[in-house]
Amino acid sequence: MKQWYLFIAFFRVGMLGYGGGPSSIPLVHKEVVEKYKWMSDEEFGDVLALANTLPGPIATKMAGYIGYKVAGYAGLVNALLASIIPTIFLMILVLTSLSAYKDQPWVLGMTKAVVPVVAVMLAVLTWQFYKNGQKGLGWKVNLVLVIASLVIMEVLGLHPGILIAALLAWALFSPVKQKQKDKSAKEVAAAAERKMV
């Protein structure tokens, strides 16, 4: 039954995610976090950050990872197929029919209407992440991170992947972590000495 739910969840995302990866992110969030509760908001944020740093379409990367997390390798294949099959059929159907009507006003209006819809969906998802960040970090730290991110991406023009890689490297090799490792190693050695005595 889990495979069926996985297929339906990503099939809906594939059907409704018109406009590419950014438009499908809120849909994946709704299915994975809100409806089926396969992940928490924090886990979803981590998956989204990781998917943004890797090359390729974000929707398929997220589908593959979430499918694997939920149901192993079979879930990975299931979620990937469910997310790309609707796109393949819709592309064939829509491109063949829209090419005949591409200059019609209703087709031009339909394609222009996608941009604000995607913008609103991304704004809602961003607001949800901001609210979740306030719970863990507090509003001051959260606001500083938002401003720093905007400056780094918009003013300095750095890709978010570079920032995430730098933060991961800092977290892995920071002196604070090394001090904690040294402290815990000393505590273990002291505990072992006490047991010997």
Rank of each mutant, 00 (worst) to 15 (best):
E31C: 00
Q104S: 13
K102R: 14
W170A: 11
Y5S: 10
G67S: 03
V146H: 04
K61A: 05
M15K: 08
F173M: 07
D103T: 12
V120C: 11
M121E: 10
S99H: 14
G21S: 15
F11N: 08
G45T: 03
M1A: 05
M91N: 08
A165K: 06
Y101V: 13
F129Q: 13
G138V: 00
A185R: 11
M39T: 03
V151A: 15
G67P: 09
A123G: 12
A71T: 03
G72S: 08
F11K: 07
G20W: 12
M62N: 06
Y101G: 05
P105K: 06
L54E: 08
S149G: 15
T96D: 10
G67Y: 09
I8M: 10
I88R: 08
M110F: 15
I66F: 05
K140C: 03
K135S: 10
V13T: 13
L93S: 13
L125H: 05
R12C: 11
A113K: 07
G67I: 01
L172A: 14
K102A: 12
Q104Y: 12
P26N: 10
G67R: 02
A191P: 02
V107Y: 06
Y68H: 14
V13R: 03
K35F: 00
M121Q: 10
Q3D: 12
G72D: 07
Y65S: 05
Q134S: 09
S83N: 15
G109E: 08
A169T: 11
V124D: 07
V13H: 07
K140I: 08
G161F: 02
P116I: 01
A59L: 02
M121T: 06
G109W: 11
F11A: 11
L81F: 12
L54Y: 07
L95K: 12
K30W: 10
G138S: 06
P55Y: 05
L48P: 12
M15C: 13
